[in-house]
Structure formats: C-alpha cells, structure tokens
C-alpha cells in the first residue's frame, strides 16, 4: 500500500495540468471574490478578526469551485492502469488488489489535494501575519482536517470510481453538474442535496463544532432559536436530510463522508472482482 501510495502520489503531483488548472481556478476565485477573499469576511457582521471564523470563510471560498478541479483531475487515475496495459504486471505481484486500491486512492487524493492545501494554508499564513494572530494556523489545521479533508475523501472516492461505469470525459461533465446541483444550488430553488448531511460542501462542522454564525439570520431558516441555525430550509424538498446543526450532527456528517468514501471504494473493488474473470 505504501509503495502504491508513494508512486501514485509522485505521478499525480508531477502532472503539469494539475498545477495549471488549479492555478487558473484559484485565480478565478480570487478575482470573483476579490474583497471577501482579501478580508475573509463573508458579509457584514462576520468578525474577520476572529481567526476561527476567518479560517472557516477561507475554507468555504475554496470549497466552492476547487473540488470540481480536484474531482476532474482524479477521474482517470483508477482506469488508467488498464488503459496503459500495466495492470497485468501489477496483478501478478503478491501485493493484494485492495491494498493497491487503497494506496492509489490515498496517494492520488493526497497529491491532488496539495495545491488545494497550499492555497488554503498560504492564506492562513498571510492572515496570521497581517492580523498578528498566530493561533489562526492552529485553527486552519483544525478546520481543514474536520471540514475539508472528509469532503475531499468522499469526492476523491467518487471521482476515482465513477469512470469505471462511464467514459472519463462524460464523468467529468456529470461531476461538474453534480457539484453545482448537489452542493451550490440553493435548496429552495429545486430539490437538491445542497446543505444536506450528504453534501460535501455543507457547513455542519462549521456550525456544530466551531460555532460559526452568519452575519444575519438567513430568511429561509425554519427553526430560529436564540441564535442562527443551520439545518432545515423552508419550502425546500429533502429536508429530512438537513438535521439541525450541532456537535452530534457535525460528527455525523464527518462519519457520513467517510462511510460514503469507503462504500464507493468497496463498490469499485467489487466491480474489479467482477471484471477480473
């Protein structure tokens, strides 16, 4: 597993397209969200001087579009062993298929997440220096590990396994559609998984573990206790997938992301077993 991790990481991190596409997309984010990205404050009332809030906002901004790049760049990694004709030699070694699959998954996902992490932690360092808040670095790690990593683990598994069922180009198109439909479209606009426990882009951890609150109470929140909540959305379908945010639900979201990742990888392994003979 370690050998596969090591070489899959190396092969992915060396791809020029990885750095070019991430660079262009990051530039689009910076230009589009110029002021909010510079200040790390999403709307009036968000305390940009609070390092936790600033790091959550920073992660939120990157999670809008960078996962699309991340998923599309992973789409050919699992199927390319067969395409390159290298699978026979690998299968004839005593290293198990499952071990190689896990190594490939972790190696390629880690390499593809490097530019993502550089953008995020680079902004955190800049924030820590300009605000004189070294604690931001600790919060950056905590926010990244609990919000971004589980999401990327699920998205990575989906992006690796999806092209087993369809051509990678078609998968990439459908993945972009999925990202917008399932993560970015407001739930009141159409039935969507956005802001649900199944959405990699939801804010359950931000609200549940880090106490993040928006500037103003969203007008579409069904339950409005003493403080603003994250959960069911008025007039939206699939609200049963949007429990009210809290510590337990935040942990549940992390668990759901990990279970989904493991399930998708297991299906990929089963698919390989089925096609082996």
């Amino acid at each position: 597993m370690i050998a596969t991790f090591r070489y899959e990481f190396l092969m992915q991190i060396r791809r020029p397209v990885l750095w070019i596409v991430y660079g262009l997309t990051f530039a689009v984010i910076v230009v589009t969200f110029g002021q909010p990205y510079a200040e790390l404050s999403m709307g009036a009332g968000v305390d940009r001087h609070d390092p936790t809030t600033a790091m959550i906002v920073s992660a939120d901004l990157l999670m809008l579009l960078l996962p699309i790049v991340y998923g599309c760049l992973l789409a050919d990694r699992l199927i390319r062993d067969r395409r390159l004709g290298v699978v026979g030699v690998l299968d004839a070694t005593p290293t198990g298929h499952t071990s190689r699959l896990i190594g490939k998954y972790l190696g390629t996902c880690a390499a593809t997440a490097v530019p993502f992490a550089l953008a995020y932690f680079g902004r955190a360092v800049a924030y820590a220096i300009t605000e004189g808040e070294p604690s931001a670095l600790g919060w950056a790690v905590a926010v990244f590990v609990t919000t971004t990593v589980p999401a990327l683990l699920f998205v990575g598994a989906l992006a690796l396994a999806g092209p087993l069922l369809m051509p990678p180009m078609l998968f990439q198109v459908l993945f972009v559609v999925y990202w917008f439909w399932g993560n970015l479209i407001p739930p009141r606009m159409m039935p969507t998984l956005a802001d649900s426990i199944l959405s990699p882009n939801s804010r359950y951890v931000a609200y549940g573990l880090f106490g993040y609150r928006p500037a103003q109470q969203p007008p579409d929140v069904l339950v409005a206790p003493d403080y603003y909540t994250y959960g069911p959305v008025s007039e939206a379908a699939l609200n049963f997938l949007r429990p009210e945010a809290g510590v337990a639900v935040a942990l549940l979201w992390i668990g759901v992301m990990l279970v989904l990742a493991v399930s998708v990888l297991s299906l990929a392994r089963l698919h390989a077993i089925r096609t082996e003979s």
């Binding site: 092969m11 004709g85 290298v86 026979g88 030699v89 004839a92």
Partner: peptide
C-alpha cells in the same frame, strides 16, 4: 516467486 512478462506490457510513461 514469479517473474511475469505479459504479451502487451504497459508502463507508466511518467516514471
């Protein structure tokens, strides 16, 4: 204990 050379050997071009 096996050495195997398949008919259509593929390699990773980037290594």
């Amino acid at each position: 204990t096996l050495g195997y050379l398949p008919q259509d050997l593929g390699v990773y071009p980037d290594l």
